[in-house]
Computed example of a mutant assay.
Amino acid sequence: MAKQDYYDLLGVSRTATEAEIKKAYRRMAMKYHPDRNPDDATAEAKFKEAKEAYEILSDSRKRAAYDQFGHAGVDNSAGGGGFRSSGGFSDIFGDVFNDIFGAGGAGGQSFRGADLRYRLDLTLEEAVAGTTAKIRIPVNVECKTCDGSGAKPGTQPVTCTTCGGHGQVRIQQGFFTVQQACPHCHGTGKMIQDPCHDCHGQGVVQEHKTLSVKVPAGVNTGDRIRLAGEGEAGSRGAPAGDLYVEVAVKRHDVFTRDGNNLFADVPISFTTACLGGELEVPTLQGKAVLKVPEGTQTGQQFKLRGKGVKSVRTGEVGDLMCRVIIETPVKLSKKQKELLQEFAETMEGSGATHSPKHESWLDAVKRFFE
């Protein structure tokens, strides 16, 4: 049975453009696709015929052979003079049906915009309490002059003469044929002869925009806040990327953070360490009273519960750990030195009663040298 003429099958003239052929195939493919016509053998056959016709007429070399020799010029079963398809249904499906369902074909690739990253420096107070920060970032946005086409208003990109609009070229390497993106149109299938004067043919321009970033309470260094759609503009109408705001908490003069807990060194006097007392210490929620028992040693830690950071994820609140550091008095007066000397004399012979750590250390040293 003689095959139907490909042009008649798609309902286009022999002088139809590539766009007209693709449009005709789309119409037939949508109508007869097996997914839309389950268990319909007639529709499936028509779909396969349309696919075969499109595969030939959408390829400039195959179309030229078909125009000159008819079906014999492209028939895979012919003796060897015809063009053989290196692809199959997947090639056609990728070229046209991805366009139909929004993924973009090889001749008109569209790419989601790149994600961007921004470092946001915060004070510890801002990170713990939460804040709203204003940031100004440079981004590539779709050129409004050419609506992202890259072509001067009033003109349109033209079909790439190197790849015939397919965005791909085949290179023969010995017995193998390698397919790669067209080096002239970079896989878009289009070339711009008269570029837009604002974007210089790129379709995007760089702008600065100011964004308001809501920072939740309890964030820490390394946490990221995602702003959907605030990244680079996509190409050919594809969606924009996202902006990831990465938090970096500045070093604090008083507190050090570890997870949800805060740590602070609290200097105390020699007399307070000996006699005990109460100290007023700072917290991120205000002032608090730290009770120091008598006989406190340097390096001891005291916990102030609930004075740490509320977790941004679990809601749990950490503690403030105060480490006391006993300060040795400096620049003593003659009178103060005399008083200290008298005090030292009263300590002589007391041994472990007043200095238990010192005595245990001496015992350890003796054992070391024995």
Rank of each mutant, 00 (worst) to 15 (best):
P356L: 00
V292T: 06
S269I: 06
R84H: 07
E125Y: 15
K31S: 14
F263S: 10
G80M: 03
P329E: 02
T145I: 05
P239N: 09
G130C: 04
G201T: 09
S212T: 13
L120M: 05
D265L: 10
E294I: 02
S360C: 02
P183F: 12
D147V: 12
C143E: 02
A238W: 06
G277T: 01
R224A: 08
C182Q: 01
D95C: 07
E230A: 01
N37T: 07
T42A: 15
E126K: 03
E125S: 14
K3D: 06
S235K: 10
K22L: 15
A43D: 12
D115A: 00
D59W: 05
Q68H: 11
Y118Q: 08
G286C: 03
K62H: 01
A19V: 14
K331F: 14
T328I: 15
R257L: 04
R14Q: 11
R226G: 01
G349Q: 11
D258L: 14
Q206R: 15
G80P: 01
I137M: 03
E126V: 02
S60F: 15
V289C: 04
A238T: 07
A238L: 06
A64T: 06
D115Q: 06
L320Y: 00
K134Q: 13
R112H: 01
K307W: 09
R257E: 12
Q193H: 13
H71P: 08
F270H: 12
S13R: 12
F83H: 04
L122F: 11
K51C: 09
L10D: 01
A24T: 03
V317I: 15
H166Q: 13
R27V: 11
N37C: 09
A16N: 08
E232V: 02
V178W: 05
E327G: 12
G174D: 05
A288G: 01
Q341P: 00
F93K: 10
V281R: 07
G70Q: 04
M321Y: 15
T132R: 13
D75R: 04
V324Y: 08
E294N: 08
G94W: 07
R236W: 05
L279T: 11
Y25E: 02
G231W: 03
A264K: 03
E338L: 14
G306T: 02
K152P: 00
V266T: 11
H33Y: 10
I135P: 04
V205D: 10
L284A: 07
D258G: 11
K134T: 13
G73S: 10
G259V: 09
P38L: 03
F302E: 02
G150W: 08
A114C: 10
V205E: 11
I225F: 03
M347Y: 00
